[in-house]
Nucleic acid binder design. Structure first.
Lengths: 140, 140
DNA sequence: TTTGACTCTGCACTATGGTGCAGGGTGGAG
DNA sequence: CTCCACCCTGCACCATAGTGCAGAGTCAAA
């Protein structure tokens, strides 16, 4: 089995050296084996693990959730655990997409209304931001 | 003109007291007038300004961008400046929406494929994360 | 006058996901 | 043997948008 130093494992996985140490500190990677010199030693499995982390991150999982996924994997967790986690993530994404879309549409409307000419007095974008409904802060 | 202390202006605008001081430090609010006691004094214009910030934030503008918007406003900027800023924001939103949608679809596909039953060996979600294309990190 | 609510400054801390650096030790090529 | 690249630890710091707190001073009602 190939043994890699931290620089190699980081390069193979496409992350920074400090990131590898950071993941170890955060419990996303097990504590590395050490050479007599104190150098951390890695295997190709660790490259896979790092890549898993990288890819899960691009799917929007937080490091916390990735740690959970990795624990499930190590503990021979069940498919239903993983599916639940993924479904929660999916629901988060859908909620966030809904919010962002609403914001986008509101902003697009303002931009469409603004001629882009003249001074700021009466500019639909500025006025639009000013004119939004404000829930219940005028009371007291 | 009504004079408000920081607690009142914060409550009227629907933000925290510390947030008001924070915005002053960050240049989003001008330095407040002071009473002899040293208390900050505000007007209803400041309430409007704070609300403007709050609302712009819900549209996804960063504090930095809001500061720019407020500077434009103060400097009698032109409508085209504001429109450009808003269009940039809109383009950001569209890009982000595209990315999130792609991620959502990828995750939804994995979730659909996973029966939610059995051990993790061969779980489509875990495998799916493992199997994503990795751009050009194997080289070197 | 006393009490309680409010405000002041300055500083530390939160979460997230790392990055950078100082001051050392190690490994291998020339 | 020297040189450089690499690695170690521990710590501070980045952005973002605030929040919290200590210790002191102020304001207003009872």
């Amino acid at each position: 089995m190939q043994t890699l130093t931290i620089g190699k494992v980081a390069k193979q996985a496409g992350v920074g050296i400090d990131t590898v140490r950071f993941y170890e500190r955060e419990g996303l990677l097990p504590e590395a084996r050490r050479a007599e010199s104190g150098y951390r030693l890695y295997s190709l499995d660790d490259v896979d693990r790092l890549r898993f982390i990288r890819r899960a991150k691009t799917l929007g999982f937080s490091l916390e959730e990735i740690a959970e996924l990795l624990r499930l994997n190590a503990a021979e967790g069940s498919r239903s655990d993983v599916k639940h986690l993924a479904q929660r993530r999916l629901a988060d994404l859908d909620r966030k997409l809904g919010e962002l879309t609403a914001i986008r549409d509101a902003l697009a409307t303002l931009v469409r209304r603004c001629s882009g000419q003249g001074s700021l007095k009466g500019c639909p974008i500025i006025e639009g931001v000013l004119a939004q409904d404000t829930p219940s802060y005028r009371e007291h």
